[in-house]
């Protein structure tokens, strides 16, 4: 490896991050008992996902965290055993404190959130929430993306650390680019081949 911007380190970092997440089938959720869900404003996707989960797991109980504007829509397909908790604005780790007041966190065995695409950096706040929740108890973490696939996080902590390294490298790359002589060093190996 010539420098930290070498392709081999980049590929190793990304393959490590990718290895933390597996695509799964909906049937994988058939064993979940009590699922904490961050509702999505992609209403049709959200609704169909909840209905599909209930189809493979009729006994499941949902704790639904929704923005105020989604409350009525979400309640249309909730059952009596489900619970809705409203939140206003961007989700932060303060949500964990609120959840701790309203529900028994130890009873949760699974978590579901929605994203535009897998490992969306926009979800950094959700990852922070998940890491804080994980300090209370381990649970299965599922992510449904807008094209309908469902993923299971096998190692959230490693994934989050990997993404932090990636973002730090991106910031460092930006600073390197401001110094032409350093940027040339990054490309030097190409010229000597």
């Amino acid at each position: 490896m010539n420098n930290i911007f070498d392709q081999s380190f980049y590929d190793f970092l990304c393959s490590t991050i990718d290895s933390c997440v597996d695509e799964i089938e909906m049937e994988h959720l058939s064993e979940c008992k009590k699922m904490l869900v961050i509702a999505s404003n992609a209403r049709e996707l959200f609704k169909q996902s909840i209905l599909q989960i209930r189809k493979v797991n009729p006994q499941i109980q949902f704790i639904m965290v929704v923005q105020e504007g989604m409350k009525e829509y979400s309640s249309e397909y909730m059952t009596l055993k489900d619970q809705i908790i409203t939140w206003s604005g961007k989700y932060t780790t303060e949500l964990v404190d609120l959840l701790g007041e309203k529900i028994d966190l130890f009873s949760i065995d699974s978590f579901l959130f929605f994203s535009k695409h897998l490992l969306d950096l926009r979800d950094n706040n959700i990852f922070e929430i998940l890491l804080k929740l994980s300090e209370v108890k381990e649970f299965s973490i599922y992510n449904i993306i807008f094209s309908g696939e469902i993923y299971l996080f096998r190692d959230l902590a490693l994934c989050c650390r990997g993404l932090k390294v990636y973002q730090a490298m991106e910031s460092f790359a930006e600073e390197i680019c401001d110094r032409q002589e350093l940027l040339k060093e990054c490309y030097k190996e190409v010229q000597t081949q």
Binding site: F5, D6, Q7, F9, Y10, D11, C14, S15, I17, D18, S115, K116, H117, L119, D120, L121, R122, L163, Y166, Q167, M169, E170, A173, E174, I176, C177, L183, C186, Y187, V190
Partner: peptide
């Protein structure tokens, strides 16, 4: 070339482009 982006922002590509030349 794998990379990670934020869906609500433009893609910042310095790192993947430099690494993969």
């Amino acid at each position: 070339v794998p990379m990670y982006q934020s869906s609500d922002r433009w893609g910042v590509l310095n790192y993947p482009v430099i690494s993969h030349k």
